[in-house]
């Protein structure tokens, strides 16, 4: 009682102070316009700053794109912001040679496999972590996260031997499984954040209405966290797509990722810069496509569902 009354009295005294200061500034109109002007200035500063940042951010990528449309002679003859002899020759070389474009196909195959596996196993686990207490739950969660943090270099050799010994070396599933090491913990982490935002009452009502757990999970719960699933799939895609060290170690010919094939541009006759640039540009395209689909939810996803 006493605390609440003291808060009220405090607030009322604050109000009087605020009112007093308000009335003391007699001519009101210029004050408002000053504040408005300040806000507008701040907005313009923000826009200019953002534009400058985006230009700096995109310049290296633009340079790569620019170079991919040039011939090697033009690249080496000097700098220019636009290709003088615009050519698609570098791209034609990649799309015309199976040893090149199969690299993209391989990468996309193992990334998709990884996305599906990660989501399938992470969904029930994230539900368990968000809804139940069980023996060792916190330690399990920490152990999962510590795998997300473990440097792949540490596991490189045993990985190679493990997958060779079970006969999976140089298959897409090997890379997909290896990438689960960091993607599954991440998926559990993000999904758990999203699921905790769904009130328990929904589960309980569904059970009272006679839904079994699997039916409830698929029919009611999953649609509720649709955006969370999309964002999780995006993150699995992203981290599997950008990783090279494990993917390169676990493959040799049949499942070789594009990142490893790109090293072929180094040859005795020097670097094939145009081809390298074109291959690089093509690795950026799928990422942009995928992020376009989840653009409205990705901000929340980057905070791992925890804002």
């Amino acid at each position: 009682m006493s605390t609440s009354s003291s808060i009220t009295s405090q607030r009322s005294s604050e109000e009087t102070i605020a009112e007093g200061s308000y009335s003391s500034q007699a001519p009101q109109a210029p004050v408002v316009s000053l504040a408005e002007r300040k806000a507008r200035n701040a907005m313009w500063r923000g826009r200019i700053g953002m534009t400058v940042y985006l230009i700096l951010l995109l310049m290296p990528i633009y340079w790569l794109l620019n170079m991919s449309f040039k011939t090697n002679t033009e690249i080496l003859s000097g700098l220019s912001f636009f290709p003088e002899n615009f050519t698609l020759e570098n791209y034609a070389k990649i799309f015309g040679d199976p040893t090149w474009y199969m690299g993209y196909v391989n990468s996309i195959i193992y990334v998709s496999m990884n996305m599906v596996i990660s989501l399938l196993v992470a969904l029930p686990a994230a539900y368990a972590f968000s809804r139940y207490k069980f023996v060792g739950d916190k330690h399990m969660f920490f152990w999962l996260l510590s795998n997300r943090m473990a440097p792949p270099a540490v596991f490189l050799l045993p990985f190679f031997q493990l997958y060779s010994s079970v006969g999976l070396f140089d298959t897409h599933i090997a890379v997909a499984l290896a990438h689960c090491l960091f993607n599954v913990p991440l998926a559990v982490w993000i999904l758990e954040g999203f699921m905790s935002g769904v009130p328990r009452e929904i589960d309980e009502t569904a059970y009272i209405d006679g839904y079994s757990f699997p039916k409830f999970f698929v029919k009611i719960f999953l649609p509720l966290i649709r955006s969370g699933i999309g964002v999780t799939a995006f993150f699995c895609f992203m981290f599997s797509w950008v990783e090279l060290l494990l993917a390169r170690t676990l493959t040799s010919v049949d499942a070789k990722p594009i990142g490893a094939i790109m090293t072929r541009t180094v040859s005795a006759s020097g670097m094939d810069w145009g081809l390298l640039a074109a291959a690089g540009v093509l690795t950026i395209v799928p990422g942009i496509l995928v992020i376009y689909f989840v653009r409205n939810h990705v901000a929340k996803g980057f905070a791992l569902g925890r804002v």
Binding site: L54, L57, L58, P60, I61, W63, L64, M238, W241, V242, E243, L244, I258, G259, M262, L276, G280, T283, I284, P286, G287, I288, V290, I291, Y292, R295, V298
Partner: peptide, 17 residues
Amino acid sequence: ILVAIPLLIPWNVVGTI
């Protein structure tokens, strides 16, 4: 989308760029 682009580039391509 523009800000997120660098995050989606394979790490070896980042090195190449």
